[in-house]
Design a protein around this nucleic acid. Structure first.
Length: 600
DNA sequence: ATTAGGTTGAAAGG
DNA sequence: CCTTTCAACCTAAT
């Protein structure tokens, strides 16, 4: 955890004098509640509002599985460009404009060049805690320091300052929601001062001032076949959408996230403000305080974690943990992540990614992701569980472990209840490794990558946090709870309207079969003009068998973690709290790096 | 060492 | 639409 950039209060910022200030927009694509923009306009006679197009983010990747760059699908790039156009329009209404720069390769080089070329005295930008941003911003602040340029970098993307919360919690990020909320307290109020004018931009020298580019100009090829998601980017749209959502006060007061309907698509069960929060078109603090206003006008309201305000706290929770956890975005070297020997690739992964698993509920969600760049939170759960720990595995039967009939438990309740006097054999780490190398369930990082690229609300901290959650790698550990790719969707949408909408080939399948079309008699398939295996794929796995197998594999992986058989760090100090009995039993393989630690 | 608690499972029963 | 059961996880707090 690096030191946060020093905060400057408004008074200090106001008295500071600099001939020209540069406001560097990255996230925070808004005018309201924008402390960086506020400080710039107060302290300088000329303000340069800048956005730098990042080739590392936008460069077309023809090898990608859908149009876009390696890191972003066109839906999110479109949303970004719409947000920039709206930001430009709003700045122009205040007598300014957005200066769109194109970096050759490294964004920080372009910013540093502008600072120098325009003789900037003060640089203002919103603090960003993502690793990519931290490295990028350090290059710029180092340059600024060396050049005597004042830097103001306030926290305004999140409700709280992640570094401050970590400090309050004794130097470690709170790892449970409850402890996070207790540590955090009440968030600061948004900065909502109204003003009608911004200082003009200064001389831009030889810089060519181009408008925000059109998506078609970025080289992604023919986009005429691309579906345009129903959500338009920008602060104006964000504020409108927020007001519409908050208008229904009863809905706000009674909101409970887990009770939402993931199949609702004509009118989604949530606000769909996440993409606006992701780009900072909407201030989380402003949203939070508007929600509080609604709560004050109603008799009762739901509470965190399920409430609407509670959702914003979840966002901050993941931002804080991700900021305070090295290698948060991966399994390796991530101290809070269970070490599970996932497989890296396979046909099953591609079937999942492309919505061809043969499970209409799963495929419809993945197609909605591809077309809309957004789906309901519970829909994300469903497909993430299916990919990682729920279903996608090979039907390999000859398991080394089962032949040997070893018990790998160190759980005292299990041994007491079921095998009170039995000799508990310890499962050795190498056996687990051998066994799991045949395993086909798929690494959460692969699913994470697909979401990260295609979601219009793709957010580094939240996306990784939720993949850790769903794969039972961190935060959540009840791996016996597996979403059924059949019954989970059916309970919300028994008629299958959601499936019919996103998978048109199934639109005439009777509702009795739409969640399991392979069970429909051939005559029914013919009548629906959808032959399973021809017009729509057969299921790639059998859910009953696969989920049972996956459950077992998770049990094995957890046992390995308990034994301190952490394949990455080899550090058993905090993972072997559990007591186990190993007296006189099979000696763990000598290649096991750490012996179980005896307690009692 | 023990216990309580955990945003979002499924199936069965009322 | 509610609760209970199922089989049972882990973590934090005590």
């Amino acid at each position: 955890v690096g030191d946060p950039p020093p905060l400057m209060d408004a008074a200090t910022a106001a008295t500071a004098t600099a001939a020209a200030a540069l406001v560097w927009f990255r996230k925070g694509l808004r005018v309201h509640d924008n402390p960086a923009l506020d400080a710039a306009r107060r302290s300088a006679a000329r303000v340069y509002p800048v956005f730098v197009l990042d080739p590392r983010y936008l460069r077309p990747d023809p090898a990608a599985p859908s149009p876009g760059s390696a890191r972003a699908g066109v839906a999110r790039v479109r949303f970004l460009l719409e947000s920039l156009r709206d930001l430009d329009a709003r700045l122009r209404r205040l007598g300014s404009r957005l200066l769109v720069l194109r970096a050759r390769d490294d964004v920080s080089d372009a910013v540093c060049a502008a600072l120098k070329d325009w003789n900037i005295g003060k640089l203002c930008f919103e603090s960003d805690t993502e690793p990519y941003a931290l490295a990028r911003d350090k290059r710029v602040t180092d340059f600024a320091a060396a050049s005597g340029i004042e830097v103001f970098s306030p926290v305004s993307h999140t409700l709280f300052d992640p570094a401050e919360i970590i400090e309050k919690n004794g130097g470690r990020p709170p790892l449970t929601y409850q402890s996070f909320v207790a540590t955090a307290g009440e968030p600061p109020k948004p900065v909502m001062e109204k003003y009608s004018e911004l200082p003009p931009i200064g001389d831009t020298g030889g810089y060519e001032l181009l408008p925000v580019p059109k998506l078609e100009e970025l080289g992604y090829g023919d986009l005429s076949q691309e579906y345009i998601p129903p959500f338009r980017g920008g602060e104006t749209e964000a504020l409108k959408r927020m007001r519409e959502s908050l208008q229904d006060k009863e809905w706000v007061a009674k909101f409970e996230k887990p009770k939402g309907d993931p199949s609702a698509f004509l009118k989604p069960a949530t606000t769909v403000l996440s993409p606006y929060l992701k780009f900072g078109c909407l201030s989380a603090r402003y949203f939070y305080h508007c929600i509080q206003d609604v709560y004050r006008s109603t008799k009762t309201h739901t509470k965190p974690p399920v409430s609407l305000a509670g959702q914003l706290l979840w966002r901050d929770f993941f931002y804080t943990v991700s900021f305070g956890t090295p290698n948060f975005h991966q399994m390796e070297g991530n101290k809070i992540c269970k070490q599970i020997p996932w497989r890296e690739n396979g046909e099953l992964f591609v079937a999942w990614r492309d919505g061809r698993t043969g499970y209409p509920w799963i495929d419809a969600i993945m197609i909605q992701l591809r077309k809309w760049g957004w789906m309901h939170h519970l829909a994300r759960h469903s497909v993430a569980c299916f990919l990682t720990r729920g279903d996608l595995r090979a039907g390999r039967k000859s398991l080394h472990a089962r032949k040997k009939r070893v018990y790998f438990t160190s759980d005292s309740t299990f041994s007491k209840k079921k095998k009170p006097n039995s000799k508990i054999k310890l499962f050795c780490f190498t056996s687990i490794c051998q066994l799991v190398s045949d395993m086909k369930y798929i690494h959460w990082e692969q699913g994470r990558d697909v979401f990260e690229r295609l979601l219009i609300d793709s957010d580094w901290a939240i996306n990784n946090g939720n993949w850790l959650w769903l794969s039972c790698s961190s935060f959540f550990y009840q791996y016996h709870r597996i979403y059924s790719p059949i019954s989970f969707g059916k309970k919300y949408d028994p008629n299958g309207d959601y499936i019919r909408h996103f998978i048109p080939v199934l639109k005439d399948m009777p509702k009795e079969y739409i969640y399991e079309p392979w069970t429909a008699p051939l005559s029914v398939q013919e009548k629906a003009r959808c032959i399973v295996g021809k017009d729509y794929p057969k299921p790639v796995v059998d859910h009953e068998a696969a989920s049972k197998e996956c459950r077992k594999r998770m049990e094995e992986a957890y046992a390995s973690n308990r034994l301190g058989g952490n394949p990455v760090k080899g550090n058993s100090s905090n993972s072997s709290r559990r007591k186990f009995s190993d007296g006189g039993q099979d000696v763990p393989d000598s290649s096991m790096s750490k012996q179980p630690r005896k307690r009692s």
